[in-house]
C-alpha cells in the first residue's frame, strides 16, 4: 500500500515539475487518437451503409424471350448452381411497363402511345449475403451473361464498383492513420518522458545514491505513461463523440448520409482504442526509462 502511495506521490511531483511538456504530449496523444478513430468511425459507418445497400442489391437479367415454366425451372437451377440467391422474380414486359409508368409519375404521359412490347422479358435476382461483395457480384454477373437466352445483365456496376473502391480507400486510410497513431504515440511519449528524465538526471542520480531500486524509479514513469495513454485517448474519444453528435445533428438527413443511420463506435471498439493507447504509452515510457537506467 505504502509502495503505491509513494509511487503516486512521486508521479504527481514529476508531473507538476514538467506539466508544460506533459500537456503537449497529452494533446498529441489526444489528436492522434482523434484522427485515427475519426477515420475508423467513417469506415465502420461506410461498412454499415454498404451492408444496407447490399440488402437492396439485385441483378436484372434481360432475356431474349419469355421462358416457359420448365424454362424458368431450368433457369433457376442454373442460377442456383453458381451460388445461393434469396429470390428470383420473372417480370413480363407488361409488369415492367407498369413499374416504369409508376416511376415516371407525373411524366408518365411520355409512355402514352407506347406498347409494353418494346420492353424485354426479364428476371430479377436478389443474391444471398455471401454473393454481395464486389468481386463475387462481378463473377456472378459474368456467369449470368453467359447463360443461354440472356441478352444483358445490369446491377448498377459503376456505382457498386465506385463504392467498393471507396471502402478500399477508407480501409487504407484507417491502416495508415492507425500506424501513424502507433508511431506518434510511442515516439512522442518515449521522447517526452526521456526529455523530462534528462531534466531530472541529478535527482535520479541522488535517488540511486540513496538506494532507490529500479522499480522505485521506473514506477512513477510507467504510471506517467499509463496516465498519458488513459487521458489522451479518453479525451480523443470524447472529442470524437462530440464531433459525431455535431455531424449527426447537422448532416444526418442530408443526401447520402440520409440513406442510413449514423452510429458511433461500438463500446468494444472504443475500449480497444483506449486500451491500445494505454499500452502504447506505457510501452513508450518503459523504453525511455530502460535506456536511461542502462546508462
Amino acid at each position: 500500500m505504502r509502495f503505491f502511495l509513494f509511487i503516486f506521490t512521486q508521479t504527481l511531483r514529476n508531473i507538476c515539475h514538467s506539466w508544460g511538456v506533459q500537456l503537449m504530449t497529452l494533446l498529441t496523444v489526444t489528436l492522434s487518437v482523434l484522427i485515427f478513430s475519426f477515420f475508423y468511425l467513417i469506415y465502420t459507418n461506410m461498412l454499415q451503409a454498404g451492408e444496407k445497400i447490399g440488402e437492396e442489391l439485385r441483378l436484372t437479367v434481360y432475356l431474349d424471350a419469355q421462358l416457359s415454366p420448365a424454362g424458368q425451372e431450368e433457369f433457376i437451377k442454373k442460377v442456383n448452381s453458381f451460388g445461393k440467391v434469396e429470390k428470383i422474380i420473372f417480370i413480363t414486359p407488361e409488369q415492367a411497363f407498369q413499374r416504369l409508368t409508376k416511376q415516371l409519375g407525373s411524366d408518365s404521359d411520355v409512355l402514352a402511345d407506347l406498347s409494353p412490347a418494346f420492353l424485354p422479358y426479364s428476371a430479377e435476382i436478389y443474391p444471398h449475403k455471401d454473393l454481395r461483395n464486389l468481386s463475387r457480384i462481378k463473377e456472378f454477373s459474368d456467369y449470368l451473361t453467359n447463360l443461354p437466352g440472356t441478352q444483358k445483365v445490369q446491377y448498377g456496376q459503376a456505382w457498386v464498383e465506385r463504392f467498393g473502391h471507396f471502402i478500399k480507400l477508407l480501409r487504407f486510410i484507417v491502416i495508415i492513420s492507425g500506424t501513424l497513431l502507433i508511431l506518434t504515440t510511442m515516439f512522442m511519449v518515449s521522447y517526452t518522458l526521456r526529455l523530462t528524465l534528462y531534466a531530472r538526471q541529478d535527482e535520479l542520480k541522488v535517488l540511486r545514491y540513496l538506494g532507490a531500486t529500479n522499480s522505485y524509479i521506473k514506477g512513477p514513469v510507467l504510471i506517467e505513461g499509463f496516465a498519458l495513454g488513459l487521458f489522451g485517448s479518453g479525451l480523443g474519444l470524447a472529442a470524437l463523440f462530440f464531433l459525431f453528435q455535431w455531424i449527426k445533428h447537422h448532416f444526418s438527413s442530408a443526401g447520402f448520409l440520409g440513406l442510413f443511420e449514423l452510429r458511433f463506435l461500438p463500446m468494444s471498439d472504443s475500449a480497444i482504442i483506449l486500451l491500445g493507447s494505454i499500452m502504447l504509452c506505457t510501452l513508450g515510457s518503459l523504453l525511455s526509462i530502460r535506456r536511461l537506467l542502462k546508462k
Partner: peptide, 29 residues
C-alpha cells in the same frame, strides 16, 4: 545503500525541492 547514509562534501541536495523533501528522500525510498 539504503543502510548507508552519506553526507557528501558537495551535499548533493536537490535545490528545487524543499528541506523536508530532501531529508525525506532516503526514508521515502
Amino acid at each position: 545503500r539504503q543502510r548507508i547514509g552519506v553526507a557528501y562534501q558537495d551535499f548533493k541536495l536537490l535545490p528545487r525541492l524543499s528541506v523536508f523533501q530532501n531529508i525525506a528522500m532516503p526514508m521515502e525510498v
